[in-house]
């Protein structure tokens, strides 16, 4: 089986400071990988390098495209990379307002990606928007409301709908449950898990919340100071951490 994503030796520097260094891994179709680490560990830098938002100083991010098979997205043309960003890739931001158009209705937010890939039939676009609102558990009657009138959890679910409407194969998530109430988090996690399975999505989830990765991620990478210090099966890394930093991280979580 061809990996969906092959990451080889990614490095990003900010001047003399290291953002992340020497990160390599393969992600297979249907796999969900978590990246954990404290603030400043380079996990968000890495995610942005992978998603094409930042240009890494070294390394390859090879994506198995539908048309041409594995292609290095770091060196591919910008239009092609942006096209990927609208079709096969999705990016869920921590703050919904970074990923939504706050002045555009919920339906317009969901429809944007469809229109971006050439959909020009209002009725069909609206139909899909309504369908997706249902899938992320937002009442259809809210389709013409702006996201600014939504709660934080609803905004985050809308962001997910907006991203998944074009049926992407790889979803990047940056702290998708950050800043949400625990009960709202649970609902979102449940929703994400269902969608991941239903759609056969692969996902890379950056978070500092170990409970989130335990529930969502098959595999885990632990980062510290820009480097991967430990990687493996999620439950193995959490239950039998090998590296000093991971042990510290795991033992620092309050037990409920």
């Amino acid at each position: 089986m061809t990996p969906l994503l092959q990451v080889n030796g990614i490095e990003k520097r900010y001047g003399a400071r290291i953002g992340c260094r020497d990160v390599s891994f393969d992600l297979y179709p249907g796999e969900v990988m978590g990246i954990v680490g404290e603030s400043g560990s380079g996990k968000s830098t890495l995610l942005n390098c992978l998603a094409g938002h930042l240009k890494p100083d070294a390394g390859q991010v090879i994506f198995d495209t539908r048309a041409d098979g594995p292609v290095d997205t770091v060196t591919m043309s910008e239009p092609a990379r942006r096209m990927l960003g609208r079709t096969d890739w999705a990016f869920v931001h921590q703050h919904a307002r970074d990923g939504l158009r706050m002045s555009v209705s919920a339906g317009g937010n969901i429809g944007e990606r469809l229109m971006a890939v050439g959909s020009r039939h209002y009725g069909q676009i609206r139909g899909q928007a309504l369908d997706w609102l249902g899938r992320v558990e937002i009442a259809e009657s809210r389709v013409d409301d702006r996201p600014s009138a939504f709660s934080g959890g609803m905004q985050q679910r809308l962001q997910i709908a907006r991203n998944l409407v074009t049926g992407p194969r790889l979803v990047f998530m940056d702290e998708p449950t950050g800043g949400l109430d625990v009960s709202v988090q649970a609902r979102l996690l449940d929703l994400l898990r269902g969608l991941v399975r239903e759609m056969g999505l692969s996902a890379i989830i950056v978070t500092h919340d170990l409970a989130v990765v335990r529930l969502l991620a098959d595999r885990l990478m632990v980062m510290k100071d820009g480097e991967v210090v430990e990687a493996g099966l999620t439950d193995q890394v959490l239950d039998d951490p090998q590296h000093a930093y991971t042990q510290l991280l795991v033992s620092s979580v309050l037990q409920v």
């Binding site: 099966l233 439950d235 239950d239 039998d240």
Partner: peptide, 9 residues
């Protein structure tokens, strides 16, 4: 058991 399940390395 956990070693067999791969939960412990």
């Amino acid at each position: 058991m956990r070693v067999i399940y791969g939960n412990y390395l």
